[in-house]
Computed example of a mutant assay.
Amino acid sequence: MMTVRADELRENLHLVRERIEKACEAAGRASDEVTLVAVTKTFPVSDVRALTALGVRDVGENREQELKAKAPDWPDVTWHFVGQLQSKKARSVVRYASVVHSVDRSSLVTALSKAAVAEERTVRCLLQVSLAWYGPAEAATGAGRGGVEPSAILGLAAEVAAADGLELGGVMAVAPLGSDPDEAFAGLRDVASRLRSEHPGADWISAGMTGDLDAAIRQGATHVRLGRALLGTRPPLG
Score class of each variant (00 low, 15 high):
Met1Gln: 13
Met2Ser: 14
Val4Lys: 09
Val4Asn: 07
Arg5Trp: 12
Arg10Asn: 05
Arg10Leu: 10
Asn12Gly: 05
His14Glu: 14
Leu15Cys: 06
Arg17Glu: 08
Ile20Gln: 07
Ile20Thr: 05
Glu25Cys: 08
Ala27Gly: 12
Gly28Ser: 04
Arg29Leu: 14
Glu33Arg: 10
Thr35Cys: 09
Thr35Lys: 15
Leu36Arg: 08
Ala38Ser: 11
Val39His: 00
Val39Trp: 02
Thr40Tyr: 00
Thr42His: 14
Phe43Tyr: 13
Phe43Asn: 05
Ser46Asn: 05
Val48Thr: 06
Val48Lys: 00
Thr52Phe: 07
Thr52Cys: 08
Leu54Cys: 14
Gly55Asp: 05
Gly55Trp: 01
Val56Pro: 03
Asp58Arg: 11
Glu61Val: 03
Glu61Ser: 03
Glu61Ile: 05
Asn62Arg: 03
Arg63Thr: 13
Arg63Trp: 01
Glu64Ala: 12
Glu64Pro: 02
Gln65Met: 08
Lys68Leu: 14
Pro72Arg: 12
Asp73Gly: 12
Trp74Leu: 11
Trp74Thr: 13
Asp76Tyr: 04
Asp76Gln: 14
Asp76Leu: 06
Val77Met: 05
Thr78Pro: 03
Trp79Asp: 05
Val82Gln: 03
Gln84Phe: 11
Lys89Cys: 00
Ala90Gly: 01
Arg91Phe: 00
Ser92Ala: 12
Val93Ser: 00
Arg95Asn: 04
Val100Trp: 03
Val100Leu: 02
Val100Pro: 01
Ser102Gly: 00
Val103Thr: 12
Ser107Ala: 11
Ser107Lys: 09
Ser107Gln: 04
Ala111Cys: 03
Ser113His: 02
Ala115Phe: 01
Val117Cys: 01
Glu119Cys: 10
Thr122Asp: 09
Arg124Asn: 12
Cys125Ala: 10
Leu126Ile: 08
Leu131Asn: 12
Ala132His: 06
Pro136Asp: 15
Glu138Asp: 15
Thr141Phe: 07
Thr141Val: 02
Thr141Leu: 06
Ala143Val: 15
Arg145Thr: 15
Arg145Asp: 13
Val148Pro: 06
Val148Cys: 11
Glu149Cys: 06
Pro150Gly: 12
Ser151Arg: 13
Ala152Asn: 03
Glu159Tyr: 00
Val160Gln: 03
Ala161Leu: 01
Ala162Asn: 07
Gly165Asn: 01
Glu167Val: 02
Leu168Asp: 09
Gly170Ala: 11
Val171Phe: 10
Met172Tyr: 02
Gly178Trp: 03
Ser179Asp: 09
Pro181Thr: 13
Asp182Arg: 15
Ala184Leu: 11
Ala184Trp: 13
Arg194Leu: 15
Leu195Ile: 13
Glu198Ile: 05
Glu198Asp: 11
His199Phe: 15
His199Gly: 04
Asp203Leu: 01
Asp203Tyr: 10
Ile205Cys: 04
Ser206Gln: 10
Ser206Phe: 07
Met209Trp: 09
Asp212Asn: 08
Ala215Trp: 12
Ile217Leu: 07
Ile217Arg: 08
Arg218Glu: 14
Gly220His: 05
Ala221Pro: 00
Thr222Gly: 08
Thr222Cys: 06
Arg225Tyr: 08
Ala229Gly: 14
Leu230Ile: 10
Leu230Gln: 06
Leu231Lys: 03
Pro235His: 11
Pro235Tyr: 12
Leu237Thr: 14
Leu237His: 07
Gly238Asn: 08
